[in-house]
Every structure is written in structure tokens, then in C-alpha cells.
Design a protein around this nucleic acid. Sequence first.
RNA 1: GCGAGAGUGGCGGAAGCGGCAGACGCGCCGGACUUAGGAUCCGGUGCCCGAAAGGGCGUGGGGGUUCGACUCCCCCCUCUCGCACCA
Length: 832
Amino acid sequence: MTGPVPTRVRPYDPHEIEPKWQEVWEREGLFLAVEEDDGRPRFYCLDMFPYPSGDLHMGHAEAFAIGDAIARFRWMQGYNVLHPIGWDAFGLPAENAAIQRGVHPKEWTYRNIERQRQSFRRYGVSFDWTRQFNTCDPEYYRWTQWLFLQFYKAGLAYRKLAPANWCPTDQTVLANEQVVGGACERCGTPVVRKDLVQWFFRITAYADRLVRDLDRLGRGWERAATMQRNWIGRSEGAEVRFRIEETGDEVPVFTTRPDTLWGVTFFAFAPEHPLVPKLAEVGGTAEPVRELLDRVQREAAAAREAGPSREGVALGVSAVNPVNGERVPCFVAPYVLMEYGTGAIMGVPAHDQRDFEFAREHGLEVRVVIQPPDRELDGASMGEAWTGEGRMVRSGPFDGARSPQSIPEVTAWLEREGKGAPAVSYRLRDWLISRQRYWGCPIPIVHCPSCGEVPVPEEDLPVLLPDDVDFSPRGESPLAKHEGFVRTACPRCGGEARRETDTMDTFVDSSWYFLRYTSPRDDRRAFDPEAVRRWMPVDQYTGGIEHAILHLLYARFFTKVLYDLGYVDFEEPFTNLLNQGMVLMGGAAMSKSRGNLVEFADELAKYGADVVRATMLFAGPPEDDVDWATVSPSGVQKWLGRVWRAVHEAAAASAGQEAAGPSGDGAGEGLRRLAHRVTREVTDHFERFRFNLAISRLMVLTGELQRAVDGGSAPGPALRDAAERLVLMLWPIAPHLSEELWREVLGHPESPVRTGWPAFDPRLAREEEVVLVAQVDGRVRDRIMVRADATEEEVRELALASPKVARFLEGRRVQRVVVRAPKLVNVVTRGS
RNA sequence: GCGAGAGUGGCGGAAGCGGCAGACGCGCCGGACUUAGGAUCCGGUGCCCGAAAGGGCGUGGGGGUUCGACUCCCCCCUCUCGCACCA
């Protein structure tokens, strides 16, 4: 082809152009969301706000490349976009880092925020900086406290003594959601159980709605919705009351299989069940039961994680089965969990594997009451429990009924007979929000010796977090030792009282921040209902899947509570969700200890913002993980360099001409058609977040533009049209380069966003010619160019006329010809 | 164990619908230009047979539906993620 082109064009240097445009954007106020209705539709584009634990890392580089591409695309499409940023700034890591370095958590946090802020600017993200806030600012957490009080008033915040997950390293309790595989989510230390008085949010009251409304969510929620559904763990069944023969106590159990009630041969309590001490006393088994309890308490979490244990101690009392009056022995068994159901179970060895194992261990009867369709089971010889379907036997009025289809009838019967009732059980526990740590939002409650628990009056908020606190962890809140903080007057009686010293889980802070962005400077309320109505719900939420059952569940819960309290008029905060994958290095998550850490700042210094962004977007679908070791930015870097040259040369070759002018035919017409087709494709890829495909099409357009310039065969208008489209569509991907080429090279005075996303002419975008594939018996034998509007008959004739096809038809009889005009003809010779 | 998702060249990944498998890029091979190239440009690149023309095979494995299967159905294997004694 052509030889080397003398490089008249100055080289592409991101470091020269990027800071320039960042300043221009700021000066022009290009990314400010407009409050007034200016006729444009609104679009709330939200990225999960960062935690300031250092500088931004490669994970942020990916997440915000995606979020910014979406925001900029919507902007160009003419939306009034709200794209805010802030910091999730309270939390344990700040405190731990501060302890290690001897810096105050506040100082450490604000320093990191400033660093991240600078990095975001250097990355050129299109944030509306005027809306920034940090959750550790008193102007923010004042309203977190206010929300707590609303929850409190509504009976949704309460304090109780409960066994809690305690992390011995971090010296604080954790929510269930923060315990991963029995260990602290943050530091990996196995948690232990500790009975403590703690603050909870009554999320279980919303369990049903939180499950139900998962079906109403928009795009991208599928994975997170499934995880939430599992986490909430809704099971339908029945509650059945057993009576303790010796004491007359009524003990309810929850079961999903009331149809197996006739197969009950024992009864078991969780070790922590409140009735256990009394029953052991009555049964004369106090000693062995206490021994078991002590051991369970000691071994706690570790033993439970060790695997299924079928140990247990007989209580020496009997429970009466309400369906048949039979008396069965009672046990205390650690495999029965206090935190699920009622803390007591009916034991049906024949039809529950755990009960089966327990019965074997303790020599209890295995009584079959559901017979499988194909054989006859005998309890004495079974190897495992039968949990499949079958026919009910030895089941009184239900003999012969089909199980599990009979469950609704059995439940109805139980209710009629007054022996039980339909019931729903959830795996979800109430959200434990107390933390015995310093760097968090103080809980606005005062404990008064005479009035008890008293909420701080709203006008006294915020309860300020004092700076001069010894925050080394000692197992109780550091605030407890700050007398100036603790001692206060009771808001009700004025007497001497003490402040609550626990702080709130940071997930409380992040459960409403998206509302605050709509009116971040409002100092009279948490958020302006008008502004919320204008912007909410969030149209597009981007963030990591690791928050599927933490932040995303809590934020949904908060929104529903605020809906019930009349503060918002929608029940779901985030319409569409995009969970981007992780950034790996050599197949593993980056970490300093693993020695595979790639610093964002280094990559930025090496390649510039546009190359890093485009590399992230080109690596694959946003949901997939990106392995930085395998996605070398060099390909993208070369491409942007080619864009630079091609646009420069196209601009020079079309100087003074309009894109709309005549394209001529031949190369000019072909280029113009390609430009329109690529516009159509890229638009579609953007709508579906397929940035990798969008970029691949833009690469093709770049190549063809350069070829047309080199060939000198396309007239100026066609060159200009292709160059302008390319540069406009580049804006969400490599915004700095796009600005430079648009304004400085193509000579437009204003940013590409003012021109907007390019439209395409469907007539030009349509393919004129397509490849007709001619098959014989499903195998490709020839490819023929045909007009895109060729008829079935024409296509058929063309295919049959092909010598290559004819060769394979020799000696065979054509049975049928399948025609899918204009792309495919399949000549079938085999019998069908 | 339960739930969800995924297996395509040496690598990242394409192929809404059943219709040209491997777009685009990396890497690699060859060439051009060069004092030089880890810059740039051009060409090639799934595997096998063949000098070529051409042919055969190919989307984790096995079956099936269909004129036609990466795509739909059944069974199996592997991997990733979430939950994990949930009654």
C-alpha cells in the first residue's frame, strides 16, 4: 500500500492535552446538573461513592471509567445529568490506620479524600463537584442521626440484649452481613458470640417487601436480586405447638414440612433456648445439660464451623405431638439454631437428613410416613432420609394423600384443629448497627437514670463526635471514656444522664447518601422533598457486586421506611444496576502483600487518563473481571494515536468544507455509509454498555478514515463527516482527546457535548450489499455478494448457479432448498 | 449440600433472533522504512493434510431436536461467585 507518511502531525501527547481540558471543563461548568426544568429529561447517574482508605486504585479506575462513559453518553443525548461524588468517610479502616500511624482518623480521612479528589480530577471524571460531601462531616451526619430518630420513633430502631458476632481483633460487634464464612469481613478473624446490649434496625419487618419488590427492579439487578433473595431466605410453612408433658409449657416449632408431623420421634431445643434450664431441672438433667451448654459457649463459632455435629443431651422430659398425642423425648442439640425459626424443632428422622443422623447417633426410631412411589421404605434399614415425594402413611386423616402436594391441606387442617397455623420464616436477622468504635456517627440517645432511654431532641442535633478521644480499641466504645461527651443532661427531666457511646455502622451512612446529593447544602432537613422528586430514583447505579447484600439491601430498606414515613414517594432507590467486575493482576486480586499491586497513579502517569479509561472499557463487558496483566494498554494507546493522526489529516484535507457537503461516489460514498453504520452500531452498543464492542467499531472507522485520507479518493465532506462522528463518539471514552480534536483540530468553538450524540441516516446506515452464503447440506460451499434487497427467487437462482455449489450437487438429488434471503441458501440433498 | 453464572484460537474477547464461528485488539510470523527499533506502516496468523487449488476437523464431554446448533432440550465434567446445620 502506501509508504510511510511523513509525520507532519505533532505526536499525540496525553500529558500535554489532558490537564488543559480539565481546566476548561471546570471553567465552563460543563458538568453541573441543572435544577430548573430546562426541557431536558433528567438522568441520575450514580457511582458507588468511594471509601477514602488511600489513593484511588485500579478498581476505581475501572468503575469510574464505566460510570463516566454512561454519564457522558447521556449528556450527549441531551439529558440533564446528575453525576455526583462524595466520600463514605466514617469507618474502621480509618481508625485502624490512624492507630498504626499515630494520626487522628479525621486528619487521615480528610487527607485521603483530598488525594482521591485530585486523582479524580486528573482522571477527568465528569462530576458535579459543587455537590460533594463526606459522611463524616457534621453537616451530613446530623441528618444520619435525624434519620435514626425517625426510625426510633417508628419503632424501627431498638436496643436489646442479644448474642452478637464479636470480632476480637477489631474489638467490635458486626452485622450478620459483615460475617463471611464465620469470620470478620474486614480482618478475617473468626468471630465469637457475645451477649451484649446492642442497637438494631428492624429490617425483618420489611423482609417480605424486600423480597417481593425484587421482581419490580430494572435492568442489571438479576444477580444481586438472586443473592438478596437467598440472603433473606423466605420459607413458607407452618408453626405447630408442642406441649411439654411435665411442665405444660407450649413450645412452637417452625416447619416447612407439616406433612411429616406423624413421623416425629423426638423433639430438640437450641442450647440457648430460654426454656432449657427449667426443663433440665424438671427432668433431672441439669448437670449434663450445663456441661453441654458450657462447651458450646466456649467453642462457640469455631465448633459450629467445624461441621455437622449430631451431639445432644436428653432433657428427661417429653413433648406431646399435637397431631397424634404421642409423647417423644426432648433433647438439647447444638445443631438446632436459636437464631432461626423458634429455636426448637420437631425431629423427623425418616424425612430430614440432619434428624436422621441425630436419630442414628442416639438410637431413636426412624418412622417412615412418606412412602416413595417406586419402593417401600423401612425405617430400620434406610441409609438416608427420604425427602422426595410420595404417599402419606400412618398419618391419620391424611393416609394415602400425596406429599408434598398435601402440605396446604395439612396446614389448613392444623389451623382448624387449633394445633398450628401457616407461618413464614426468614433467614434475615435484624440489622445490628452498634459499633464499639470511635470513627463513626454517634447514636443520638441519652440514658437517664429516671427517664430511661431518651432520644436527643432534633433541634439539638448533631451530637458531635469529639476530636480529643483516646480511640485505641478496648472492647467498649472509646467514647465511653470521654467524660465531656458522656456526661449530659437528660433532655426530658434535666437530670444528670449519660450519652449512648456506641457509634453507628457505616452502612447506615451510605444507606441514604443518594438522597442527599439531590440537595446537599440543605441545612434544614436531610433532603429537599422537591429535589428528591426531581431526581430520584437513581436511573443508573454502578458499583461492585460485593455490595449486593450489604449496601444494596440496606439502601432498599431505608427507602421503604422513608416511603412509609411519607418522606419519599417511591419504594425502590435504584432503577437500573450495573455491577462491574474486579480488576485483577495475574489472575488474583491486587494486594500489597501479594506483591501484584498496580498503582493507579503510576498507570495514569505512564499512559494518561484517556488510555487507561479506554483500556478498561475495551477489556471486555463491564460485568467481567479485568486482568490488568492480560489487557496491555498498548493496543488502545496505538489506536488513540491513529485517531489523532487520522483526524488531523482528514481535517487538513477537508479544510473549509462542511461535513454535509456532497460525498461523491466510490470511496467517498463508502466512507460516508460506513460512518453512519458505525454510528448506528456504536449507539446500540452504548445503550447496552458494550463499550468493548463500541470501541472495536470505532477502531474500524478509524482505519477506514485513514485509508480514505491516504488514498485521496474521498472528497472533503465525506472525510469531515467521518472524522466528526469519530470524535463525537469518542467523547465518553477518551474525553480529553475528543475535546482537543473537536475544538482545536476540527475548529468547533464548543465542547462535543454541546453538539451532542450524532444521529445517523438509516438509509445510509443500511447495508447495500451482503454476503450470500450458499450451503449444500448445511456446509458452506460458496459466498456471493448480493444486493441487500435481493428477493428469495433471485438469491435461490444465484446460489444454484454457483459452480462451487454445482460441484457438490453432482450425482445427488435436490430434496429441498431452504432460502433465507438475502443471506443464506441451503440446498439439501439428503432425505429428511 | 442449596442458589446463581460461566466454559469459544497462544491471550482478552466477538457472534440479540438457531443461519459465514473467531469481529476488534494483544501476542506471534514475515515484510517496508530505518544507523537503530521495544517507534510507525503493510501483509499473514483456529487446528490438520496439501507446494497450491482444495479438502477435512473444530465453540468442555456425550446424546437429542433441526435443512442448519457456540446458540434450543436432556445427561455429565470443570471453574467462578453467593449462602451454608435455615428445620
